[in-house]
Design a protein around this nucleic acid. Structure first.
Length: 477
RNA sequence: GCUCCCUUCGUCUAGAGGCCUAGGACAUAGCCCUCUCAAGGCUGUAACACGGGUUCGAAUCCCGUAGGGAGCGCCA
């Protein structure tokens, strides 16, 4: 027998995808990307996108993680049609609540003779693995309990010896399928050892619950990380033994760090939460993820709607993609500049001075936006505009000195009269000194902000508290 | 060790035997614009991992080498 999946679904065929994270930690960027791709895949085909929480490992799974996971996905703008917070007939969407279903399917496997109890202890197994590895052989289950006489099996079960349930992998077969991104795949069943489908504590193991849920939830296309590629034959075997139609599979290459190693904690921030807390905008992250391991002819920041249109599974990359913060910065910059006034104020709320009126806050943030990547970057400008007069660096002091006292007495007088009106101040200085262009504006900028570069001077001046401008200009008069 | 996957500019990638003296975007360099920065415009630098085949012709097909990665768990 050889199991072979047909070609990827045709356009127009119902497409049901899913994202199936385990709530054992924070949402990783790589997982966020597969979630995004799966959502896009479903949307572009007018299908459905489901969210299933794989919390079969009760030790490591936590409800708090599940909540955080949903919150992070929602923050990114990813929406699911059904999930743990939105149950429907296909649910429940928490694996911890699907025990009865698994028992049913497991019983079917037992009836079919596709599984057998294994009494090997974890210690025995790890010892066996170690010696196999040491001998240069694949660390596969040796088949110790595979052909135990029925009487012996019955005896041990009666004696209450803890047992797992193993899948009896048939010999001499090829398991074939067409991977959506890698094309035709072929594996020899002889390379696959009998694997556990039910743990000694009675709970379903990953290969099993994951495959069975995909089938029972009607998933038609599973797009997941490449780390699952060589696991796919096992799942195909389970599904075939159960008589379930397999979904189509696609495996996207993993995300790697700047050094080419799989993206992990040692590369710095790898969770969505960390980026969110640093002030990155969801649009920026999603746009970056969209182009990692995927290509599009479109330029510029894309909305989710545009991504749905532009997403092309045929352009899914086969090689690992580096998560480059510099590229992310480009999207962040663009996303920041597109922020609507109210959103911009909210984004910078933590660094804006308290009690600033709405008009000033709007003008100030608008001026700041082209100059900041993250809210943190706005802090120095808040200090400059609302704090004490800036100290001048030698180079800056020279600019001011070269302008001469006449320049600043005219400027200070104009500021006393016109307040924060740059046009009025610059006009007065021009009249007094005949300067224009950079010669006219640079000393003003330096005297007022202490820096040669920065946001739109007119706006900074306008929001500067009354009297500060005159005071700063008068220092050099 | 075995099985599987991968390898085009610094980065993300286009490329399915001639359209490739390899295209785009970001980054970078220069110029223009400009009160500065940013934005925008123009111009430039920069890549087919290596070696063999196959072919009139190979980034594209085949084989091998090297280098990366994954899986082989009572973790998902």
């Amino acid at each position: 027998m050889s199991t072979s999946a047909s070609a990827p679904p045709r356009q127009g065929a119902p497409v049901i995808t899913r994202f199936a994270p385990s709530p054992t930690g924070e949402l990783h960027l790589g997982n966020a990307r597969t979630a995004l791709f799966n959502q896009l895949l479903a949307r572009r085909a007018g299908g459905r996108f489901l969210l299933r929480v794989e919390d079969t490992d009760s030790e490591r799974s936590h409800e708090a993680h599940t909540r955080a996971l949903l919150a992070d996905l929602a923050w990114l703008g990813i929406e699911w049609d059904a999930g743990p917070d939105r149950e429907d007939a296909r649910g429940p969407y928490r694996q911890s609540q699907r025990g009865a279903l698994y028992a049913q399917e497991l019983a079917a496997l037992e009836r079919a003779g596709a599984v057998y109890p294994c009494f090997c202890t974890p210690l025995e197994l790890s010892l066996a693995r170690r010696s196999q590895l040491a001998a240069g052989r694949p660390p596969r289950y040796a088949g110790t309990c595979r052909d135990l006489p029925p009487a012996e099996r019955a005896r041990r079960i009666a004696a209450g010896v803890p047992a797992t349930l193993r899948f009896r992998v048939p010999g001499g077969e090829r398991i074939e399928f067409i991977d959506l991104v890698h094309g035709p795949q072929s594996f020899a069943s002889d390379d696959i050892g009998d694997f556990v489908v039910r743990r000694a504590d009675g709970t379903a193991a990953f290969f099993f619950s994951n495959a069975v849920d995909d089938a029972r939830m009607g998933i038609t296309l599973v797009l997941r990380g490449e780390d699952h590629l060589t696991n796919t034959p096992r799942q195909l075997l389970i599904l075939a033994a159960l008589g379930h139609a397999p979904p189509h599979y696609g495996h996207v290459a993993l995300l790697i760090g700047a050094d080419g190693a799989p993206l992990s904690k040692r590369h710095g921030a790898v969770s969505v939460r960390e980026y969110r807390e640093r002030g990155y905008l969801p649009e920026a992250i999603v746009n970056h993820l969209f182009r990692l391991g995927h290509s599009t002819a479109l330029h510029g920041l894309l909305s989710l709607e545009q991504m749905v249109q532009a997403f092309d599974p045929g352009h899914l990359g086969r090689s690992p993609a580096r998560f480059d913060e510099q590229q992310l910065a480009t999207w962040q910059k663009e996303a920041a500049q597109r922020l609507a006034p109210a959103a911009a104020r909210r984004w910078l709320a933590a660094v804006l001075p308290p009690g600033l009126d709405e008009d000033s806050a709007t003008a100030f943030t608008a001026a700041l936006l082209p100059n900041v990547l993250l809210p943190e970057d706005a802090r120095p400008w808040v200090d400059i505009v609302f704090g004490d007069p800036p100290e001048l660096e030698p180079a800056q002091a020279e600019v001011v000195r070269a302008a001469g006292p006449g320049y600043f007495s005219a400027a200070a007088a104009a500021a006393a009269r016109a307040g924060g009106d740059l046009t009025a101040i610059a006009g007065a200085v021009r009249a007094a000194t005949g300067r224009k262009g950079a010669d006219l504006y640079m000393p003003l900028r330096v005297a007022l902000t202490g820096r040669a570069h920065g946001p739109e001077l007119a706006t900074l001046l306008k929001v500067m508290p009354a009297g500060k401008a005159r005071e700063r200009l008068a220092r050099f008069a």
